[in-house]
């Protein structure tokens, strides 16, 4: 059926599942990223685990990319997602840095 209503890109029926799975995984991998990062920093995990943290960040970004393209997000949302991912990469570093500093200052 050639529907004139298909002006705005419609989500294809087969794309719904990958969209839901990738967006859920994006969050789960994101959780792993900050979880592993923090655990290594507070020495609950050994140092060799750190590369895995960054690997999970990459997986998160990849999942968001899949999700965004299948959803046909607009330019604005795409930019918002990129900014969110960069922010996400930096977030645990900033948090750890600050917490650590407060700890040091107060332990003295």
């Amino acid at each position: 059926m050639l529907d004139p209503s298909l002006i705005r890109p419609e989500i294809a029926l087969d794309d719904f599942l990958p969209i839901f799975v990738s967006s859920a995984l994006a969050m789960v991998f994101g959780g792993f990223y900050v979880g592993i990062y923090t655990a290594v920093k507070v020495e609950m995990l050994k140092r060799w685990a750190m590369p895995f943290a960054y690997l999970f960040w990459m997986l998160t970004s990849y999942c968001l990319y899949i999700m965004g393209s299948l959803m046909h997000v607009g330019e604005f949302t795409a930019k918002a997602l990129i900014v969110a991912m960069i922010g996400y990469l930096l977030l645990p570093h900033a948090v750890y840095y600050m917490q650590h500093q407060v700890h040091e200052e107060n332990e003295d």
């Binding site: 994101g30 655990a39 996400y88 645990p92 948090v95």
Partner: peptide, 9 residues
């Protein structure tokens, strides 16, 4: 996520 890290930390 930050709250989660916080508890862990």
């Amino acid at each position: 996520v930050a709250m989660f890290v916080h508890v862990l930390y």
